[in-house]
């Protein structure tokens, strides 16, 4: 039982990070049909900006996170204005957008390395503090991620279902032409998508830096594949699906090590578990866990 609680908890923590990053990627795809390959670098940037304000300048850690999310939004806003908007106006296709996103990622990486260096960094947070919960050991940083991650996930869900702009985003994602003729302000929707995606990327980066304890300039790149897997698992372009996909993926990976699964899947096969799950789901439900099949007439 203790093992189950421990792995469940570990899985929820990993899953929360996957979910928050995945929802940003999914929103961008649903609204702009853009596969954001720079998402991993936004994570790294978020962690480094938080580090700069909370450790170098020594302002409050939570304030530093908010500034970092603001910086993620500002960079996304800037890129939308100077790059993405012009590409859309020039009718850039999916492949062109994909290549430009890859280019942005390749530009961001050396910039981050140049500005922040390659040294391993850590936040001024006690990474060794733990709490006992029903026999399981829960790290202070994991608890922080779980609480604030859950809050962020609930806020996103509420925003998408209740806020006007959230509803507009969903409408535009479902049918851009219909949304546009129904009076949805397309530029506003696109900008909001970028801002949310930038903020969530930064937040996921801070969370990842917290649970790892330390981070360096390569942090985001190594996780990008898992984020995309979460997006696909939960149905491409579905924000709610990405949230669920991220959490499920984290849970599958960690729970697979429980002894009840063939004596426990070895740790180095965790990615295999994740992607085997993805393949199985797609085999029986090609549209993803939360998608619906379009019936041909």
């Amino acid at each position: 039982m203790t093992d189950l609680i421990q792995y469940l908890f570990n899985g929820l923590v990993v899953g929360s990070i996957f979910a928050i990053a995945a929802v940003g990627i999914s929103l961008l795809y649903s609204v702009l049909r853009l596969v954001n390959f720079a998402a991993g670098d936004f994570l790294t940037l978020g962690a480094f900006i938080t580090y700069f304000f909370s450790v170098t300048i020594e302002i409050n850690f939570f304030l530093a996170i908010i500034i970092s999310m603001g910086a993620g939004m500002a960079i996304s806003w800037f890129l939308e204005l100077v790059l993405w908007r012009n590409l859309r106006r020039n009718k850039a296709g999916t492949l062109a957008l994909f290549l430009v996103a890859t280019g942005v990622a390749l530009m961001l990486r050396p910039i981050i390395q140049y500005v922040f260096g390659t040294e391993t960094r850590k936040f001024n947070v006690d990474i060794l503090k733990t709490y006992d919960f029903l026999g399981a050991r829960i790290a202070h940083t994991q608890l922080m991620v779980l609480i604030f991650g859950s809050l962020a996930i609930m806020t996103i869900a509420l925003f998408m279902s209740k806020a006007r702009i959230g509803k507009d985003m969903r409408a535009y994602a479902n049918n851009p032409s219909l949304a546009a003729v129904s009076g949805v302000n397309v530029d506003r929707v696109v900008m909001a998508t970028w801002l949310i995606s930038g903020a969530l990327g930064s937040l996921a980066g801070v969370f990842q830096g917290l649970v790892q304890g330390q981070f360096n300039n390569a942090m985001g790149d190594t996780l990008l594949l898992s984020f995309f897997a979460a997006v696909v698992l939960g149905t491409i372009g579905d924000a709610y699906g990405a949230l669920a996909g991220g959490i499920l993926l984290g849970l599958f990976m960690e729970l697979s090590q429980l002894a009840i699964f063939f004596g426990g899947v070895p740790s180095n096969y965790k990615p295999v578990v994740a992607f085997a799950t993805l393949v199985l789901v797609l085999l029986f439900k090609p549209e993803g866990l939360f998608g619906y099949r379009t019936r041909k007439v």
């Binding site: 990070i17 996957f18 994991q142 790892q212 996780l223 740790s267 180095n268």
Partner: peptide, 10 residues
């Protein structure tokens, strides 16, 4: 362990 793991608690 895979060096690119998100966490190493498990």
């Amino acid at each position: 362990w895979n060096p690119e793991n998100a966490t190493f608690d498990s």
